[in-house]
Design a protein around this nucleic acid. Sequence first.
DNA 1: GTGGTCTAGACCACC
DNA 2: GTGGTCTAGACCACG
Lengths: 136, 136, 136, 136
Amino acid sequence: MVRIGDTTLPITLSLEASTPLYEQIESQLRQLIVSSVLAAGTPLPSVRMLASNLGCSVITTRRAYQDLEQEGLIHTLQGRGTIVADVPEEIRLQHQHGPIERSLQSAIAQARAAGLSHQELRTMLEQILTEEESQS
Amino acid sequence: MVRIGDTTLPITLSLEASTPLYEQIESQLRQLIVSSVLAAGTPLPSVRMLASNLGCSVITTRRAYQDLEQEGLIHTLQGRGTIVADVPEEIRLQHQHGPIERSLQSAIAQARAAGLSHQELRTMLEQILTEEESQS
Amino acid sequence: MVRIGDTTLPITLSLEASTPLYEQIESQLRQLIVSSVLAAGTPLPSVRMLASNLGCSVITTRRAYQDLEQEGLIHTLQGRGTIVADVPEEIRLQHQHGPIERSLQSAIAQARAAGLSHQELRTMLEQILTEEESQS
Amino acid sequence: MVRIGDTTLPITLSLEASTPLYEQIESQLRQLIVSSVLAAGTPLPSVRMLASNLGCSVITTRRAYQDLEQEGLIHTLQGRGTIVADVPEEIRLQHQHGPIERSLQSAIAQARAAGLSHQELRTMLEQILTEEESQS
DNA sequence: GTGGTCTAGACCACC
DNA sequence: GTGGTCTAGACCACG
């Protein structure tokens, strides 16, 4: 959890995960932005603040902000900090559904490549879905 | 394609992929073994042969064989080459279904984490599945 | 002896021994870990550091770390070094007693196979034990 | 099992074992000789015969015979085959007890090095011995 | 600075 | 011929 103005950002790092720290930060911020939890114009914590709160290096948070800026999701104002950019609805949906659809597709393609029949695949999926739904 | 005895192994390397070469070799051989395409006792090409056929270093093929040996899928006989191990049915199924189930689960978990409702998720899955089935 | 933080690791290599260097490193580190001399989370020297201290190649130390990681005894954090993993008590005991019991069993089996009677074997063992105890 | 004249030699090879084939042959023949199962003068099968019966290369059996000849346990007579040498009683005992004692000593030393107390070691040994005795 | 991957090339033991 | 070990040295990603 990271304080930001009056509210707090639910950002956590897993040091043991194989995904780079900067990617963990990126994906969590990206998720908060494209899902409109963070409205356009909302100020983000400074790279130093965020680094200190997450217990990681400033280099890592700077890298995350840099990447997000390149994606057009945030905006750094020289000397005045970083704010959430005004992301067009279309881009937001793209970011929300695109990666998910891709990962589902690749997982399914992998299953098919391993020799599962359509029927076996559907059965396995149904099983995972019902299990998932019962948990929440 | 790699000649091995009378038959040929469908192994190919992609230098552009981000996955290490040795992992590409490993996963393809693993797939051939756990799916019983390669029966127990089948001799594999020597590390040098495979390296020369794939156009990679001997060290890379050796690394792949080493890892597969530690998994118990192959067996190296000093001075006489490498053969497919006698993998118990149970382990074979584990290798076949485990990774697939995990990747499906993680893809679905990711979708849920991104805020998709159960209904939206099912719709998206159905769409991907029908598209996939129509292709084959 | 290898400096590590404030303390030193008693690791030595014998070039004359027939056991591979990386195995010598592995077994000594394994011993230190499963006997809890090195607590979970303790940072290990970097592969380069260790290699330079032991006078061997970086590849040799890397190989040792790699194998130990696969055994789940250590944990490598990209860009931040290697630490001792949190090994469950059960696994620790297994690592501590398993190999010893096996080597005792095989030595005894060898003696029996060579035709020693139970009585002769016990006499020989008693002799070795008392000699061993008197030395320490 | 290998036929030799009227009788048969209980020699078997394990292709999967890590010990070299020639060593497996050597140790089994050595055992048969020093325990007087094979008396001095007994003709051994030719290297070709033995190789064909064991399903290994002639090079392997020749290597085994060479080593045993160097140890003075067998004798090859040019053009007339190989026979068991006349091994002095003293040497026979040495071969019988020496290696066994050494392997027991090293196993015990390993146990002690791993931190087992004398008491723990004795307990573990007693357990292995009684188990071994109950089996035979 | 850290570890991860890949390379070429040497020497050895085994068959 | 086979695999096993060790070496030096390159390039990359991560922090």
